[in-house]
């Protein structure tokens, strides 16, 4: 009786092995699947990753240090709190400064007039709030 059970178990194991072989065979015969896997593995991006792997590992090691993780989280929450429109305006302002080759000197009367413009006073207000927050 025990011998029969043992034989049955062995035949079941063999059958399971054959089924697994059939599945692997299906995968190996699937030309399109293998093509897709090859394209994914052999690509410009994977070569780049392999080439810079030592630097990447070093960077990951630095980034995942507890103190750095906390800083990154703070940076992320700062990013989330930033207004997209305001950032766009800031970026445009920087671009305008870069585009202006020479900064013309401004007279005191012109400066006072400019300070009274609503757009400028709004900008100053933002700057003051930021400075206040940094000082608190």
């Amino acid at each position: 009786m025990e011998e029969i059970n043992e034989a049955e178990l062995q035949s079941e194991s063999l059958e399971r092995l054959l089924h697994l072989v059939e599945m692997v065979n299906n995968i190996l015969k699937d030309e399109e699947l293998l093509k897709a896997i090859s394209k994914l593995v052999v690509s410009e991006e994977t070569f780049l990753i392999i080439d810079r792997l030592p630097q990447l590992i070093k960077l990951i090691e630095q980034l995942t240090r507890q103190e750095n993780l906390e800083k990154i989280e703070l940076m992320l929450s700062l990013l989330q709190s930033l207004d997209k429109q305001m950032l766009e305006k800031l970026s445009n302002a920087f671009k305008a400064i870069k585009a202006e080759e020479k900064v013309k000197p401004m007279s005191i009367s012109k400066m006072i007039t400019t300070l009274s413009e609503p757009e400028v006073s709004k900008g100053l207000n933002v700057m003051l709030n930021l400075l206040k927050a940094l000082g608190s």
């Binding site: 089924h19 699937d30 699947l33």
Partner: peptide, 12 residues
């Protein structure tokens, strides 16, 4: 790839 692996493993 996931889709094809599902299909190739179907009988198993």
């Amino acid at each position: 790839i996931m889709k094809r692996l599902f299909a190739d493993a179907y009988w198993d």
